[in-house]
Design a protein around this nucleic acid. Structure first.
Length: 565
RNA sequence: GCGAUCGUAGCUCAGUUGGAUAGAGCACUCGCCUUCUAAGCGAGCGGUCUCAGGUUCGAAUCCUGACGGUCGUACCA
């Protein structure tokens, strides 16, 4: 349901009828309860243009405004605000329709786009660490959201499987004669061991360097070793994805090495376009207004990540035929993407019409405001962090005696992982974010557990009711009214989130829905004695809508719910 | 140096086309469970929206400058 669009359409109509020659600015949600459900603030802005005072204009608009459908009451307030109250009968019917619809009346986009979402992108030489968390879960959320809204979504996991360190790793792997997967179980230690071997032994270092060259020249022996290494490393990532309920699979992997053969073409084509300049031995693209060039080929002939990104951009635009490409990557790379996108456009690698967006995000900090590290200054392994979350969640379960040990494991998983993901997704994407176990697992305020608790509470109502739901939704109570309006806003929140790529709009919305429901529920009994059948059935349906809204919202965020907590 | 970005309650943060008295959670004070899950609800306390100008009928929001933090800045990704 798109409430705002409906209201805006009425204002466009009213403007035409009142012969006001202007495009009305959009209505907004009312800033306060006493100002109604929505407000139109455009009369003030038109004052100068029309040479009339704003209240006069507001009166003219209201005289022409159709209030026979969803608007129940209007008022002109203050300097010229138009406050709007929605019609209960209309809301009842809209909620009724949502109740009967699997998609809660959220329509599919009329014009579906092909959207590439590039996220996660772990380096195969190392284990996934906390630095990968945000990209992975924000990207997954955006992919889920766009899919739900009807876009054709292509997930792309641009894993780092190429570079000089692989010579060293493969050489070291070859030296280890025992079972390779066992050796690679702890990638971090494996990397360190290889590195210290590299630093200590000159002949090993030479071999490592030689292997880099051999891998790059498609030497069969080295490629087999390399491939085995990548496979095992990728399995680590898949373990993390499974733990995180992130939907990335091997199908989505399009590694850096995938573009290797195309890099020489990238250079040729940039050259043919006349954008290349040689500077200090390197091949560069100098962009207007930027001092530092985009280097696409080093003086030693090697390629850089800008080169690979250009190849990937072209592949996504031309082969995948993307209309929109999202890069969910640390905000610190803003400049890089700005430049690469520009190069891609001026070189016709990507048509002008394709939207290229860097979805940047802030750094994860510890409580002292420094980048998140272990006590000894190392990076925190993602799998360790998730295990810790589940362990803490298990300890926090209030009445463990209610559940079997197996159920507890599952509960802890849902709560713990949900807490980590929600804490991250509920923060404004672009700001740095302080990682705080106590806060995310305290389960107060705007947290995953609060949502999961609300959901479970509603499920408990249905268990108790244990019968079919019939009848209609009837909205009479003021809180019911507010709740109905809130529920019907969901589609617009999702659309906005998909445009801005900012998942915290979903969490903020869900939090509003849930707090409102909690208030409603405290004051308006559902199953208690003395509630007549019509009211009971209506409230059961509203409760059901709330529950399904929570479930769908969390599902988009990649967070599970449970029926009982 | 240049550039990006941020600065909102004691703490962590919302506040996205500029709107009426700037909102949550935590913490602190107080009230509400023989009654649908109290992991809840209600009330109170708490603000020079870093500062100074400007644009506007109206600015936390837009512009300029200052101060402070974070980050980036030629062959790593």
């Amino acid at each position: 349901m798109r409430l705002k669009s409906h209201l805006n359409a009425l204002f466009v109509e009213a403007f035409a009828k009142a012969k006001i020659d202007a495009i009305p600015i959009s209505v907004t949600e009312a800033s306060q309860e006493k100002f109604g459900d929505y407000q139109f603030n455009g009369a003030m802005a038109l004052s100068k243009q029309l040479g009339k005072n704003p209240r006069e204009i507001a009166t003219e608009i209201l005289n022409a405004l159709d209030t026979s459908t969803l608007i129940a009451k209007t008022e002109i307030a203050g300097p010229g605000f138009i406050n709007l109250w929605l019609n209960d009968a209309w809301l009842s019917e809209a909620c009724q329709n949502a109740f009967q619809d699997d998609r809660l009346s959220i329509s599919l986009k009329l014009q579906s786009q092909t959207v590439v979402v590039d996220y996660s992108g772990p380096n195969m030489a190392k284990e996934m660490h906390v630095g990968h968390l945000r990209s992975t879960i924000i990207g997954d959320t955006l992919a889920n959201l766009l899919t739900f809204l009807g876009d054709r979504v292509i997930r792309q996991n641009h894993i780092g499987d190429w570079g000089t360190q692989f010579g060293m790793l493969v050489a070291y792997l070859e030296e280890q004669h025992s079972d390779t997967s066992a050796n690679l179980k702890d990638l971090e230690s494996f990397y360190k061991a290889a590195k210290s071997r590299f630093d200590a032994d000159e002949s090993f270092a030479n071999k490592a360097r030689e292997y880099v060259v051999r891998i790059q020249s498609n030497d069969a022996h080295c490629l087999v070793l390399w491939q085995r290494f990548i496979d095992i490393s990728l399995q680590h990532c898949e373990d993390v994805y499974r733990e995180l309920s992130v939907k990335l699979t091997r199908e989505d992997v399009k590694a850096e090495s995938f573009y290797n053969d195309d890099l020489v073409n990238v250079i040729d084509d940039l050259n043919a376009k006349g954008v290349l300049t040689e500077s200090e031995g390197a091949l560069c693209v100098f962009l207007e207004g930027s001092q530092t060039p985009v280097i696409v080929q080093k003086k030693d002939g090697g390629y850089l990540y800008a080169t690979t990104d250009l190849a990937a951009l072209r592949y996504r635009a031309k082969t995948i035929q993307a209309d929109r490409i999202l890069y969910v990557v640390d905000a610190r790379q803003a400049e890089h993407f700005k430049q690469v996108f520009e190069v891609a456009k001026i070189s016709d690698f990507v048509p002008q019409s394709v939207r290229l967006e860097h979805i940047g995000f802030g750094t994860m900090m510890d409580s002292s405001g420094k980048p998140f590290k272990t006590r000894d200054g190392g990076t925190v392994k993602l799998i360790a962090l998730l295990d810790e979350a589940v362990r803490k969640a298990k300890k926090s379960i209030k009445e463990p005696s209610k559940f079997t040990s197996q159920e507890i494991e599952q509960l802890a998983q849902v709560i713990g992982i949900g807490a980590v993901k929600y804490a991250d997704l509920s923060i404004n994407r672009e700001s740095n974010y302080v990682f705080d176990w106590d806060k995310m697992l305290a389960f107060d305020g705007n947290t995953a557990l609060y949502m999961q608790y609300a959901y479970a509470r509603i499920q408990s109502i249905f268990r108790k009711h244990n019968a079919s739901i019939e009848g209609k939704i009837v909205i009479v109570d003021p809180l019911e009214h507010q709740l109905a309006v809130m529920l019907l806003r969901f589609e617009e929140v999702l659309i906005r989130t998909s445009e801005d790529a900012s998942p915290n709009q979903i969490t903020a919305y869900l939090y509003e829905v849930v707090t409102l429901f909690m208030r409603f529920y405290e004051q308006n009994p559902i199953l208690k004695d003395g509630v007549d059948d019509i009211t009971k059935m209506s409230r059961l349906q509203l409760a059901n809508l709330v529950a399904r809204t929570i479930r769908l919202g969390l599902e988009i965020l990649g967070i599970d719910v449970v029926d009982q907590l």
